[in-house]
Nucleic acid binder design. Structure first.
Lengths: 210, 210
DNA sequence: TTATCATAAATTGGCGCCAATTTTAGTACC
DNA sequence: GGTACTAAAATTGGCGCCAATTTATGATAA
């Protein structure tokens, strides 16, 4: 008598609809401001109505979509003020642990960071915008993890999602992308040199001008 | 033909079950680690099953309760590491805007803060632990609001809820409470003196030793 | 021709039932 | 007397239906 669902289903089926919708918002498939009709989502993600509703409620809690009673949910578009304020929060958190990052970084970590930064560079040329976006996330996640504060890493990951509705489109020009790339390497150099002040400076510029 | 529900019901009925449960967790009525049975909540708050479930899901998203599939939800108890990490995050955010707070504070704001700090002092003697807790929240909220970053205020309010499961019980001794009181006045003095460094120092000590 | 109102279609959101899983209690067996 | 197995009770969680509200459509009158 073999149990088909051992305990948490297989890993592939385990992904929640919330993440699917979230992903489509991040990649810009679901445009900022657009209305998310429950029937459409139901069909698009091949799931039931209650699942859609739970996902929408969760995303509304995380302020990625906005709920208007009896009207439905639409993709949230942060105004300039909110975006600026969130950027400032990121600056505070990420520069605040710069010294910890520098202190904890082993030569192996630095090597890994260089590899991830290079991967970002490669994606500028060869990858899709989504791959570029993900390479960027991976780099920043790896760097921030060095601070040793797991909760902080989670928090930054969460609020980064709120920064721009369609983060894929955040790099408007090619020049801006390449500037980002340079800043990545600049951060690594600062870490390698043990220069926390330089790291803080690079991080601040990097976040503020996105 | 009078409409009994004008647009969003009357303000009293509008409070969500989520807030009710949250409040009972904060005040320690629902003890850390205890299981939240849906039937009990349903009866306790006079609401329907789906309402209970939505509330539990929201609280689980905010990591105030933990969800174990097919077992239910229980009040989350943060371990020492998590509590310490969250405190560090608060230190970074609240000290990070100390200069802004000092810069923006008018004499009227300072007056208001003194009033709120006094209210806290009064609650030590005359109030219930819950009133004391709320007076403390009000004071900190008012102070932090001076930074001008609305998103940051919201964020701190949110993560403060995650710090301790039963925040009412956070002040273990009378001595600790009175120390908190002194630190409140210390913060105000620093603001009045325009001394951002002193404010940062007071905030750091205040958060770390809770 | 355009504005307004009524009717119809579509969408949201609340509620209850039932299946799946877990826990508890009881019983038989070692 | 203790342990393992079985059956029943309790709890969780998924799903579909229907009422309430909103939006779209069309008709009528100015």
């Amino acid at each position: 008598m073999n149990k088909l669902k051992p305990r948490g289903e297989n890993a592939a089926t385990a992904v929640d609809v919330t993440d699917l919708i979230l992903n489509d918002i991040q990649t810009g498939v679901l445009a900022p401001g657009s209305w998310l009709k429950q029937i459409d989502l139901e069909r698009r993600y091949q799931c039931t109505r209650p699942e859609v509703r739970r996902a929408l409620d969760r995303l509304a809690q995380r302020r990625l979509v906005e709920h208007v009673p009896n009207r439905g949910y639409h993709v949230f578009e942060p105004d300039g003020r909110q975006a600026a304020e969130i950027s400032e929060i990121r600056v505070l958190l990420e520069t605040g642990v710069a010294d910890k990052v520098v202190a904890n970084a082993s030569s192996l970590d630095i090597q890994a960071l260089r590899s991830l930064a290079s991967r970002f560079d490669r994606m500028i040329l060869e990858g899709t915008p989504i791959q570029l976006y993900e390479a960027n996330l991976t780099f920043h996640h790896r760097l921030l993890s060095l601070c040793g504060n797991e909760e902080l890493v989670n928090l930054v990951t969460e609020i980064r999602q709120r920064t721009s509705s369609a983060p894929v489109a955040q790099w408007k020009t090619r020049a801006r992308i390449e500037q980002s790339s340079r800043e990545h390497h600049e951060m690594i150099d600062a870490i390698a040199a043990g220069d926390a002040a330089a790291l803080r400076d690079a991080i601040t510029r990097h976040i503020r001008q996105n």
